[in-house]
């Protein structure tokens, strides 16, 4: 067999995977997006740009998503970073593995059940009841943007914690000693060494969470009371309720396009910021 033949054989499984998992579904979505809705729902083959022309009908959903995704990513980052920092830098190495497992264990249960726990905690008989008891009455937490952010920060915690943890964990502790030796107090050491050195992990975590948040619908529906409408919710409704597969596909294709553009821009930016560094291991 020629070298070229061998290469093709070796690449075949990866190529097949790529084709089945990525190219085929995307192609189907793309084809559907140029079709029409059947009288009783579903898809009727056609070639029309009507679905794309109708996109402004979901403008609010896109707008909400483009706000939710970065804000939610930031919220997840703000919660995850201190946790990852504690686990990687401060925690006793003896307990590190156990603590890490404790962070993951809740995520073995379904997001649905975990969201119900938050519905209870943030609901009238949870924290507001406690606040009422100490004299702060009338606080509403559930079904607010706040509760959605809490749910997102919590739901995406491991995705954000892990890349940052790995980064901080393998950070050479001698660099921190060197910084201290050169006269930097601990907080400046954090800002000048720890934080910049952990940026690749932060970038990876943010990217993962951002991409998933672009399609998120469950947490806003459960913890936001369904009052805020995201592209994910629009897709669920279009495919499962009004069964407008053609329009749903156009919305999905647009979402994928927006994601590609944002993620590419983001990676360009990160690469430029990290161009000087050895440890830019984003992808």
């Amino acid at each position: 067999m020629t070298q070229r033949g061998r290469n093709l054989v070796l690449l075949a499984p990866a190529g097949a995977w790529f084709l089945v998992m990525l190219v085929v579904p995307l192609t189907v979505v793309l084809i559907f997006s140029f079709g029409e809705r059947g009288a009783a729902g579903g898809y009727v083959p056609a070639f029309t740009l009507d679905q794309y022309a109708n996109l402004p009908a979901r403008w609010t959903a896109f707008k909400n998503t483009l706000i939710l995704a970065p804000v939610g990513t930031l919220a997840a980052l703000l919660i995850a970073y201190p946790l990852a920092y504690f686990l990687a830098v401060r925690a006793d190495p003896k307990w590190k593995t156990l603590l890490l497992v404790l962070v993951i264990v809740p995520f073995w249960t379904s997001i649905l059940i975990r969201s119900y726990a938050w519905i209870f905690i943030l609901g009238g008989r949870g924290i507001p009841a406690l606040l009422d008891w100490i004299g702060i009455g009338g606080v509403r937490l559930i079904n607010t943007p706040f509760s959605v952010l809490v749910g997102i920060a919590y739901g995406y915690l491991p995705l954000m914690v892990f890349p940052i943890f790995v980064n901080l964990d393998r950070l050479d502790k001698r660099l921190l000693e060197a910084s201290s030796d050169l006269g930097a107090p601990p907080w400046r050491t954090f800002l000048q060494v720890t934080l910049p050195m952990s940026l690749p992990g932060v970038a990876t975590g943010c990217l993962l969470v951002f991409i998933l948040l672009m399609g998120e619908f469950l947490i806003p529906a459960l913890l936001g009371g369904g009052k805020v409408f995201f592209v994910g919710n629009a897709l669920v409704d279009l495919f499962l309720q009004s069964r407008n597969w053609a329009f749903g596909s156009a919305v999905a294709a647009t979402l994928v396009a927006i994601m590609l553009v944002t993620v590419t821009a983001y990676m360009r930016l990160i690469r430029r910021l990290g161009a000087q560094r050895e440890d830019v291991s984003l992808m």
């Binding site: 809705r37 009288a39 009783a40 729902g41 009908a57 979901r58 609010t60 959903a61 909400n64 369904g226 009052k227 805020v228 409408f229 919710n233 629009a234 409704d237 309720q241 009004s242 407008n244």
Partner: peptide, 16 residues
Amino acid sequence: LTDPNRAELLARFKSA
């Protein structure tokens, strides 16, 4: 059930 206008109305209501 199958009226597209009602589906769009609900989408507008939810996203408002």
